[in-house]
Each structure stands twice: as C-alpha cells, then as structure tokens.
C-alpha cells in the first residue's frame, strides 16, 4: 500500500518536473502566459527569501517584482543542470542584494552606525512562542543578510562575502553577531 502511494508521489513529481520543463521552454520562446504560470508556482518562495533578506514587506514586494523581471531576461541562461527552483533561488538572492544596494544607497546602509534599535529591545519571554522569522527581521541589516544566506539558504561565507562585497572574516563576524542576538532574544544565557 505504502509502495503504491510512493509510486503515485513519484509519478506526480515526475509530471510536475516535466510540466515545469515545458513551461521553461515556452518562456524561453517568449511565451508570457507560460511565464505567468511559472510565476504562480514560485512567487511565494521567492517572496519569502526577499522578505527575510530585506526585513521589510514593501521592499520585499518590490524586490520580488524585480526578481521576476530579471528572471524573464535571464531564463535563457538556465541549462537544466540543477533544479530550476535551486537556480531561481540563486538568481533571487543576487537580484535582491543588488536591488537593496540601489535602495537608499548601499554605502549608507552598509557603513552607517548599525541602524536597527530593535536589538536593544526586550526579548520574547516564552521560548515556546518564539517566532524566528520575526526575530530575523529584527536583526541589523548586515547580520540579517549574512544569517539568511548562510543559515537558511546554505551559502558559504566565501560566496556571501563576494555577494555582499565584504571580507570573509566580516561575513563570519556578522553571522556570529546574528547568532548572539538571536540567542539573547530567545532567552538563552550568555556563554
């Protein structure tokens, strides 16, 4: 019984992938109706990434639109060697970082006295009611971006440093900072 349900799941996954491949080929040929379908299938995952990186709903929505505008131009670069969702996530991360650079001035954002006052606010009292996403959004910008890219998206510090234009050591330091803040906010003692 279990084996037959696995077969159905496998078949559905195969069908979904084949359908996605067909859509991608149609989009490469300039079919915007197929692109709408592809957008519907992926917009929520892209938006989740944009929201965590930007920490701001309006900025995340604008960045998501920018991702799908850029994707339309870049999709011919997708060779099918990796899963489309993996490739799209990589495009989305790069486009969002680039988009954030243009907004309010990258220099100001990256080198101003570290911005968010949220880090000084009281921590949630109950560890069981922790909303990690809300805490991530409260992180200072550099720490948040590094934490999202490393802990959630699985990028190496070397790649993050290259994406964000910082030293590898700075990426590691920002990750440590994010962890320490989250630790305090989640109500855990200092080391």
């Amino acid at each position: 019984m279990e084996q037959s349900s696995c077969t159905v799941v496998d078949a559905q996954e195969t069908f979904s992938r084949a359908r996605e491949q067909t859509l991608i080929e149609s989009v490469k040929g300039g079919d915007t109706l197929a692109y709408h379908e592809l957008y519907d299938a992926h917009v929520k995952r892209v938006y989740a990434l944009c929201y965590r990186l930007t920490g701001d709903k309006a900025l995340a929505e604008d960045a998501t639109q920018e991702v799908f505008i850029q994707l339309w131009r870049k999709i011919s670069n997708f060779t099918g060697q990796s899963r489309f969702s993996t490739w799209l996530h990589s495009v989305a991360a790069n486009v969002t970082v680039s988009y954030m650079r243009k907004q309010r001035g990258w220099f100001q954002r990256m080198f101003s006295i570290d911005e968010s006052e949220a880090q000084y606010h009281a921590a949630p009292a109950d560890a069981h009611s922790i909303d990690l996403e809300a805490l991530i959004v409260r992180l200072p910008e550099r720490a948040r971006m590094v934490f999202v890219l490393h802990a959630i998206e699985g990028y190496r510090h070397e790649d993050i440093a290259s994406m964000l234009g910082m030293a590898v050591g700075s990426s590691k330091a920002q990750f440590h900072r994010a962890r320490q803040l989250l630790k305090a906010w989640m109500g855990y003692d200092e080391d």
């Binding site: 709408h36 917009v43 929520k44 938006y47 989740a48 998501t64 505008i69 339309w72 996403e133």
Partner: peptide, 18 residues
C-alpha cells in the same frame, strides 16, 4: 515556512514591465 504570501498582487507590475 518555505513560502510566504505577498500582501499585494505583484504580477500586474511584472506583466507591465514585460
């Protein structure tokens, strides 16, 4: 969660840009 729903419709802006 892997997904998050944007609060406003984003497709229209994308479609207009395309």
């Amino acid at each position: 969660p892997e997904e998050k729903h944007p609060e406003r419709d984003l497709w229209r802006g994308v479609a207009l840009a395309l």
